[in-house]
Design a protein around this nucleic acid. Structure first.
Lengths: 333, 333
DNA sequence: TTGTACGCGTTATCAA
DNA sequence: TTGATAACGCGTACAA
């Protein structure tokens, strides 16, 4: 079952290669219905499929989109992929992926490989915050940043809102009559953590609520647990109506375990909310009011922007698009 | 900054295309050190990169591996990808991914697209259990099944051990002196669930331990929680030393919440263990003894088998390879 | 309405 | 030790 070529099909159908090619590309402007039919049947009969490599060489199109993901080992990134993949498929592009493993050299290598492959566009979850790192590639082929924006904002990007949704949740907490918000977060070393913290804090201030940052240590260390436990019990013994906000899934899980451990009732004694990066918060008892990032929408939208950028017909909008997060109002606050 | 071609490099270096090509492919058998150096410098200076499409057309190699993953929206699948991706990269292959979304037509479409792209090999997490579905493709290009074996065992596959590791954990439970094992599982409709259940049950029988299947309903329904809660409290009131085994992450999480809810001490009043598909069980208090599947190893090993299958030099072993799971012995049992 | 002939950028064979 | 040159499979002016 060796590979058919256009020439064989042509001679089998009794026409020339050109006619077959025209047929394949839908250029049957002035092709007799008769030949069309004959070609269709021959192709079917011989089970012929055009050779993409040759087509690519000729047309200088690869049909490939490259996606560099920072770390595939978490649900968030894989949902980015999933969203992007679906849109790529709808538009008949193939998605090629590489992992940068949060390493700059690995990222650079991946970019080079993509350029070599002559992908038609690149989606990247950038490691660096420095826009200039991506210049050489970004000028050579369309590129959209995913999940993170770099400075200055040279490149189009699709990101998740961290400040906005946090604020929205904060407003909700205020409305519920809490008098203090305790923000549990790992050390504020990343932009994401800072934004989540800032959003919560800002709204608290606006409504003159007290807010407190509880910085949690390395979650894998055992003494982190006891430290947190101590802080939590101090907190709830205060004479305030307290709402806890955990700024990621792991921290949230930890907080819940501690509250159970201390036999503290949610939401009677303390309100609980947080970011649910893994989509499990609905399983808790009571179900946790949480912010859920729509990673697959981010991936999908980024791919749409990229495709618009590739398509010479469509006007490409080079902007930073923010995808709203979902706020799941449940029983815990 | 338009694309250089080999011809331009050749004339710039004052040699012929052939010599450049030889240089590029490392065939400097009888090339003067002088020309080698001159070519090296010219390539560098012009920043020349060979056109992969042309190379592919000529050599009939695409350098592409296709991976069809059933559903990218879960951690397990994304780790499969991650493992496969790393190995592909080491061997200078590009990974193209498509999602079958657990749909047979979608899977078939993806397979077709891969064949059209002339990928050199296919990794697939098959939807169907029927081997014959994959015949037409599997005969045309190397293929390795990932995560699932089909019947009859026509294709090489890399799967995770569900029976073995469960048995191993069961032995451990026996050794710890428990007198009864309660197996919490969703309805035994999949092979995976059946194997996990069977492994546990078999060992229990061997040691004449009592074992009981507690079938849990849809985890998203609220009454599932109360039903489970009832079953759990009945269980612990029995006059036995009971170990609970939850056959997946969600069930395990549910069991933990219930035990907390009922103020039942782990492991004093009841032992707890289970499958930890999301790698969070270490966060619980006490940390949970659990089975952790090494999905990224599965992906990596599958890719290795596939590459061996592609490489005409290496002998390809068409077998079903089972990757052992990790058993994390912690405090909960 | 269809066919001829050339070129896309490589690799590889043969000759020098 | 290197250079001409013919493919690889397809698309497309241009000619018919």
């Amino acid at each position: 079952m060796k590979k058919m070529t256009i020439a064989e099909v042509a001679s089998a159908a009794g026409v020339s290669k050109a006619t077959i090619s025209r047929f394949l590309n839908g250029n049957y402007g002035k092709m007799s219905a008769d030949t069309q039919e004959r070609i269709r049947q021959t192709i079917q009969r011989l089970n012929y499929r055009p050779n993409k490599q040759a087509q690519m060489l000729k047309t200088n199109r690869s049909g490939l989109i490259g996606f560099i993901v920072a770390d595939m080992g978490n649900l968030y990134s894989s949902k980015l992929l999933s969203g992007a993949s679906a849109v790529a498929r709808e538009n008949d592009y193939q998605l090629v992926i590489m992992e940068s493993n949060n390493s700059l050299v690995s990222e650079e290598d991946a970019l080079k490989k993509f350029v070599d492959q002559s992908v038609e566009g690149i989606l990247i979850q950038p490691i660096s915050e420095d826009s200039s790192r991506y210049e050489s590639v970004g000028k050579r082929c369309p590129m959209v940043l995913v999940d993170r924006q770099t400075t200055p904002k040279t490149w189009p990007a699709v990101i998740v809102d961290n400040a906005l949704s946090t604020k929205y949740l904060a407003e909700y907490i205020v409305k519920k009559g809490y008098s203090k918000i305790a923000i549990f977060s790992e050390s504020l070393t990343t932009d994401v953590r800072r934004k989540r913290y800032a959003g919560m804090r800002e709204v608290a201030k606006e409504h003159s609520l007290e807010s407190e940052l509880v910085e949690v240590g390395n979650l894998q260390l055992t003494n982190t647990y006891s430290d947190m436990k101590k802080r939590v019990s101090e907190l709830v013994s205060e004479d305030e109506k307290i709402a806890i906000f955990a700024s990621n899934s792991q921290t949230l899980l930890m907080v819940l375990r501690i509250l159970d451990d201390l036999r503290i009732k949610i939401p009677d004694e303390v309100g609980v909310s947080g970011y649910d990066d893994w989509n499990w918060a609905f399983l808790a008892q009571p179900a946790i009011t949480s912010i859920e990032q729509n990673a697959s929408d981010v991936g999908a939208e980024a791919m749409r922007m990229l495709l618009a950028d590739i398509d010479p017909l469509r006007e490409s909008v080079k902007e930073t698009k923010v995808i709203p997060s979902k706020i799941n109002i449940r029983e815990s606050i």
